[in-house]
Write a protein that binds this DNA or RNA. Structure first.
Lengths: 248, 248
DNA sequence: TGACTTAGAGTCATATTGACATTAAGTGAG
DNA sequence: CTCACTTAATGTCAATATGACTCTAAGTCA
């Protein structure tokens, strides 16, 4: 009781702590079906509060970096990942987010390619989890992941976001698999192909995917606004694309 | 030179300042044409930096309130307005936003009804401006307003946001005028009416608008997710609707 | 060689959209 | 009282988009 009262009065004096976190999505083959499914990397808490629980990668905001740079740097430091797409998700500032202090988290969300995801330096404290089978995470991170999933699905429905999950060239069936994995429903291959062919941003190459046990599918390339970090259809004037954090 | 160097090293030590600001939109009749147009209230800076310039209403985040509560309170204190809709816009945290300190602003955007807007206590330091004819504002507030306008227009195109500009009952033509004012283009009255009639959330009353010099139009009512502050189609789990700040 | 698998093109009925015409119901002028 | 005028409200039609489905192409594998 006394300790609680002391905490409360302490909290009145401290300024709110500001942290940057990121929800990172990648497609990896499911363990049993082999079909691509949504995964995300988490880091284990190595200090109180929530010691031992899994949490979104994140950390404090350094003085000399923009919000997006902070997200990008944190990502690289904690998981070794360099994202193909990075965008601000939301600022979470509820009163009960952390027990010990007032904590405001500016959360980003990112997409990485499968081969990039495979390079993750996994360890005791860094591991990939299936997005649809998450255990109890630290803080309000379950709710944050749910919101990030909602945003990902919304953007997928009428945006050119899916290509950031894929490599430089890809088959139309691979794009469809991305949609099916993220939206979690079956799409008619013929109709899906018709729609993609009508999209000007996706141009056919004259190469074909070899080594499959059926007719080789044509490879395509995304030629819209390049797969640059932070590229988006919305004009976010205050967050220009940092050259130092581009793909590859 | 020396002063600058001192400032830089000082900035390294201070934690980033956290502020909440809000872009408030309302429809008011244009001075000349009388047709509704987009306006927003600004407050004059009464201290450095940018003393004398117009800026978005805002202020610091109190310890005991959520981000949305802070936006709502600030709105009420600076302009006297109680919004019909309030949603987070973006967190701006570029390095060059303020000269004297590192400043992170979490910006909200709000819609108010015309009669509510008319109650604004305007003064020497609080005034409404046309959204399409803004002078040079303090900080990066021009860019923030531009982004808020972009979001407003996007949400208008496939959301049920327009009704928050209007009163309890309204004619379909009034809804169309909202769309025309915000999107700044002409819409076919017949086709627009057809679409609205197909929307389940907008139900006809058996009342008619009187006092017009032509056939009296039927009045309608929005019966979707109520005009509650912060209501939105997206699941933002960490920011529940505060009962204390509901409309009226 | 033939079974199998996916690629890729095409068909058809239905829904949606934009452009436009027509009638309904009021006001105000002469 | 009647007519011109204005906007409400409904209807028509062609063009386009969408969903369900069929059929042929081109490879692998047994």
């Amino acid at each position: 009781m006394y300790a609680d009262a002391a905490n409360v009065s302490e909290r009145q004096l401290q300024p709110p702590a500001l942290a940057i976190s990121t929800v990172i999505f990648a497609l990896r083959p499911s363990a049993r079906s082999g079909r691509p499914t949504l995964w995300l990397p988490l880091v284990r808490r190595i200090r109180q509060p929530h010691l031992g629980k899994w949490a979104l990668p994140g950390g404090p905001l350094a003085q000399v970096e923009s919000l997006q740079d902070a997200a990008s740097r944190n990502l690289r430091e904690t998981t070794g990942l360099v994202p193909n797409y990075l965008e601000q998700l939301y600022a979470f500032g509820g009163l009960d987010r952390a027990a010990t202090q007032r904590l405001v988290s500016i959360v980003y969300w990112a997409l990485v390619q499968p081969d990039e995801a495979a390079l993750t330096r996994e360890s005791e404290n860094v591991r990939w989890f299936r997005a649809d089978k998450l255990e109890n995470l630290a803080f309000d991170h379950n709710a944050i992941v749910d919101y990030a999933l909602w945003r990902l699905r919304s953007k997928m429905e009428y945006g050119s976001i899916a290509y950031h999950f894929l490599g430089d060239t890809f088959t139309l069936a691979q794009v469809r698999e991305v949609y099916e994995a993220v939206l979690d429903r079956h799409l008619d291959p013929a109709n899906f192909r018709r729609q993609l062919r009508a999209t000007p941003d996706i141009t056919p190459t004259d190469e074909y995917l070899q080594g499959v046990r059926h007719r080789p599918p044509r490879l395509y390339r995304y030629t819209g606004t390049a797969s640059i970090l932070g590229a988006q259809a919305s004009p976010v004037p205050a967050t220009p694309v940092p050259a130092s954090t581009s793909t590859d």
